[in-house]
Amino acid sequence: MKLPEDPGDFDPTAAGEYWINKRTIDHTENTIRSNRKDLEPFLGWCIEHEIERVGDLSEWTIEQYENYAHAREDWGGVTVKNKLQTLKQFLEFLGEKGAFDGYLHPAVTVPDLDRSQEVNTEKWDKTDALPQIRFMRDSPKWNGTFEHVVTEVAWFTGRRVQALSGLDLSDYTREPDADDPADGPFLDFKHRADEGTRLKNKLDSEDPVEISEDVADVLDHYIARDRNEKRDENGRKPLFTTRQGRASIAKIRGAIYIATQPCIRIACPHGENAEKCKYRKRDHASKCPSSRSPHRIRTGSIQWQLDQGISPDDVSDRVDASVETIRRHYDVPDDREKMENRRRKYTGVLEDSINDVEDSTDLSQSVEDHCEGTQSTPDSDESSDTNEDDSTVSPTK
């Protein structure tokens, strides 16, 4: 990109792209994707209002954009906050480069939301998740498939898809050595930026995470059944693979969209014929009204772990999120049962929660009705801003 002699002469769109490119050096792909998505409306607004130089931005133009953001009916409070926070960071960067006479970012007023507005209510709820996981475990057709294993590991650990994609086969330990302080199976999440797999919070994200024996059984079945014996471009052996090598974020995302569709277990809640529905194909699975993204898996998992009595501090370590975030967005007990559940603890409790689910699904009928097209899909990476991707995987935690 050719830089203007005066930073103020930067076209807003070009300036936005320059800022995004600079951030790729020390920020994760997920953060960059979010930054780009949050900044795009402002750049489009500048084009619509014929603002051709960032040097022409002023406190008044910023206030006009804020009014526009708050007036959008399709943006909730959290969305407005995220987009204005990103704009503030962008303008601070431009100010440091001398694009303005002074700084403009203090003019951005980021809304201060109360806790009720910030609580994340969009999630794969345990009332849907636990019967679905039980079904896949019991189904000869689904158990040990890539779709099953990545979904179960994502649910049981609460980790981001980026972290799942970066796991190596050696990061999975079924039976710890005698001198290992661990007393059961676990997954060891590691930040390997120089080898192409990063964790969101870098070294702070590194942690071994306990999984149950039942989740380890799913992983073992996947490894024996569907895992491709492939190495990635750095010579490492990924845990989750495709025929080409390491399962990408997009591939894992697509598999999770498929595995969370309720019609693999019950009749379609939208009245569609499962055998003919185009949403059963991976390329269209994200458009199914009942499928869930990896982020919704993560939010549902966090709430589920809290409801089972695991403390916010322990959940923080398991899912790689700060205690403040856990408490602010998820730890919202709303009845006496949840208050009592908080006194209970840990991995066995999580597993019992799955095993104790009563599900009246007729397995044989569901398998018979299951659409064959959802199991075999090309191993092509697909990009999706819902952030992450790949084929047959194994469960953890």
Rank of each mutant, 00 (worst) to 15 (best):
S165T: 14
N21K: 11
S380C: 04
I62C: 01
G44K: 06
K81P: 04
E29G: 15
M136W: 03
R280C: 03
E229S: 13
V153T: 12
D390L: 07
S394K: 08
K281V: 07
P312E: 10
A129H: 11
G348A: 13
D180T: 10
S116K: 11
V80E: 03
F135S: 02
L199A: 07
P312N: 09
H329K: 09
E213K: 15
E382T: 12
F156K: 06
K397W: 12
V209Q: 00
R227H: 06
N120R: 15
K126F: 12
Q132W: 06
L84M: 00
A14E: 14
Q261I: 00
D9K: 03
R227F: 06
G184L: 09
L94R: 03
K190T: 12
D179N: 15
S380P: 00
T151N: 09
K237W: 03
H270G: 04
A255I: 06
L350T: 12
I354D: 01
I51C: 01
V119Q: 13
E382D: 11
I51T: 02
E229P: 09
I302M: 10
D194Y: 09
S360Y: 03
P140Q: 11
D101S: 09
L219M: 11
I211D: 07
S248Y: 03
D26C: 07
L87D: 01
V357L: 04
K123D: 14
Y68C: 00
P111H: 04
V319D: 11
V153A: 15
K83R: 15
D179L: 09
A99G: 09
P378H: 08
H49N: 15
K126Q: 15
E175M: 10
P333Y: 02
A255P: 05
G166S: 08
I62P: 02
T347F: 01
G8M: 01
D307M: 09
D188Q: 06
T241F: 02
G44D: 05
D11V: 03
H191R: 12
I249D: 14
G95Q: 03
W60G: 00
T299Y: 13
N234H: 15
K287W: 10
R33T: 15
D180M: 10
G102M: 02
S364G: 01
A163I: 10
E40K: 14
A178N: 11
I252G: 01
P7K: 07
W19C: 05
R231Q: 15
T157A: 09
S212N: 09
